[in-house]
């Protein structure tokens, strides 16, 4: 895949682990060593119990689209349009919502509640950016209701 056009992230102490894992196609979020709560984006502090003892956990399961947009405007030179942007949540990872692109279906097919797999694609500055993959066969009975992952 050719890299998508955008602006690369400024990587920080808090976000380095996320971007390093992204390069390997893995989605890392913070998980509290004390209470087990997960949160995103990474702050080095648990958003549930405020503990500073946080570690990372990989999300591998299917998520659901909380909301989305299909962008048609060419905000930067070389930006290919249209493309869908999706906000993804996971029923078994409360506290986590990740914004990313959508592939595996025409952008116009994006829908609230649709099921997606975790994925990444080459983005700006050599970074891999979240790029969720539409799951054609929705067999879990959640997708499409519009309320998945809540």
């Amino acid at each position: 895949m050719t890299a998508t056009v955008g602006i690369p992230p400024a990587v920080t102490e808090e976000t380095a682990a996320f971007w390093e894992a992204a390069a390997e196609g893995r989605l890392l979020v913070e998980r509290c060593a004390g209470c087990g709560a997960e949160s995103f984006p990474p702050y080095g502090m648990c958003r549930a119990c405020r503990s500073r003892a946080v570690e990372h956990v990989e999300i591998t399961g299917r998520g659901h689209v909380y909301s989305f947009t299909v962008n048609y405007q060419r905000w930067m030179p070389g930006l290919e349009v249209p493309y869908a942007l999706v906000l993804v949540e996971w029923a078994d990872h409360p506290g986590v919502r990740v914004f990313g692109r959508l592939r595996g279906c025409p952008p116009e097919d994006a829908a609230v509640g649709m099921t997606v797999e975790v994925g990444f694609e080459p983005g700006p500055g050599g970074y891999a950016v979240p790029s969720f993959v539409a799951v054609a066969d929705v067999g879990d009975g959640i997708g499409g209701t519009g309320d998945g992952g809540e």
């Binding site: 998508t4 400024a10 984006p41 405007q73 942007l85 914004f99 970074y127 950016v129 790029s131």
Partner: peptide, 12 residues
């Protein structure tokens, strides 16, 4: 950092 890299390039 969670918006511009993925292509959410505008407040729109």
């Amino acid at each position: 950092a969670w918006l511009l890299p993925v292509g959410a390039l505008s407040p729109v």
